[in-house]
């Protein structure tokens, strides 16, 4: 190893973290639209909400597979410990995503089935979000490891803390969904989303404060990491930056701005993710398994890095292109259906 820049496990940890963050930012808002579905008027409004995410949601979910597949390929030990530890939430997430994925397509195939697939869309989004929130909580609170395997029971993930993170993520994704609809739609759906976004913004900020405070007392290591030098340099501005983003969000909503609330909400997610990363590093499973413990041998890491270096920028470029093509408000007449 010739230093940080060429340390393959670190490079891959950044890549996998990037895939997971991209997933949260992108699928977060379309899962959020699903979470808001029961409060969106039947008929035209729902069609419009669907149309606003139809062109991009599949690409958004791609990042989950890249993150999960990447974890298997380059950090097989972490994959082997996390998956059994999160057994039930993962099954719930996968079935939720299946339902929601096909509901998207099947709801257009006939009037008769549509109310059922709409319900599937909401419940699938809810199950997937709750499961992801629980997974986050379970990871942060720590997983019992013995040797090279998960050593806990199959209900260990169910704690008051993981319940809190699950609710926090539902609130947060709903906020992303609401601000997305504010940005992308007009008329009654826009007004409805705007009305929902305000309380969701406050609830999200409160949840972040609650989760952060609880995390600091959960394991003193987190506190030490956040307050240690030089990490303090990065972690100290985090609450300030989050507060600023929160102010921009609430102020933007009050001023009836279209784009700013969405970007502010996304920044809040980025800041939280970075804060989490500082608390984790150099562990991949706090505080048992480090990035280096979990990494596959360099021969595996290099082999896949070649392909990833070529294909991930291409996928990013395509994705950016898709968002560019679909920029602006969704035209209710020209959308899907």
């Amino acid at each position: 190893m010739t230093g940080f820049a060429f340390d393959l496990p670190t490079v891959w940890a950044l890549l996998v973290a990037f895939a997971v963050l991209t997933y949260v930012l992108l699928d977060g808002f379309d899962l959020g639209v699903g979470l808001l579905f029961p409060w969106i008027g039947d008929g035209e409004e729902r069609d419009l909400a669907m149309n606003s995410i139809a062109p991009v949601w599949d690409g958004n979910e791609t990042w989950l597979v890249l993150g999960g597949g990447g974890l298997f390929a380059v950090f097989p030990l972490a994959f082997a410990i996390v998956m059994p530890a999160l057994y039930a939430p993962l099954i719930a997430m996968l079935t939720g995503l299946i339902f929601r994925g096909v509901a998207f397509e099947f709801r257009w195939r006939g009037e008769r089935g549509r109310p059922w697939w709409d319900r599937g869309f909401f419940l699938g989004s809810l199950a997937a979000t709750l499961a992801q929130g629980i997974a986050l909580g379970a990871l942060v609170q720590g997983i019992e490891v013995e040797g090279r395997a998960y050593a806990g029971g199959w209900w260990d993930w169910a704690t008051p803390f993981s319940l809190l993170t699950a609710i926090a993520l539902v609130v947060g994704y709903a906020l992303l969904g609401a601000t997305w609809l504010v940005m992308k739609t007009e008329g009654r759906l826009h007004d409805r989303a705007l009305a929902a976004a305000r309380p969701l913004a406050f609830a999200t900020l409160a949840s972040i404060a609650a989760v952060s405070a609880w995390t600091a007392f959960l394991d003193p290591v987190y506190m030490q990491r956040w307050l240690a030098w030089p990490a303090l340099l990065y972690s100290a501005p985090m609450p300030i930056a989050t507060g600023l983003a929160g102010w921009l969000l609430i102020q933007g909503l009050a001023a009836g701005r279209d784009v700013r609330p969405f970007l502010a909400a996304q920044s809040i997610f980025v800041l939280c993710f970075v804060g989490l990363g500082i608390g984790f590093y150099p562990y991949i499973l706090p505080h048992d398994v480090t990035i280096h413990d979990a990494a596959a041998p360099d021969s595996s890491l290099i082999f896949l890095l070649v392909g990833a270096a070529v294909l991930i920028p291409l996928i990013l470029a395509y994705t950016a292109h898709a968002y560019w093509v679909f920029r602006g408000k969704v035209d209710p007449r020209a959308g899907y259906h």
């Binding site: 298997f72 097989p76 994959f79 082997a80 596959a296 021969s299 595996s300």
Partner: peptide, 10 residues
């Protein structure tokens, strides 16, 4: 996954 991951994962 742990044991064969370095080969089949990539």
């Amino acid at each position: 996954s742990d044991k064969a991951g370095p080969v089949v994962g990539p």
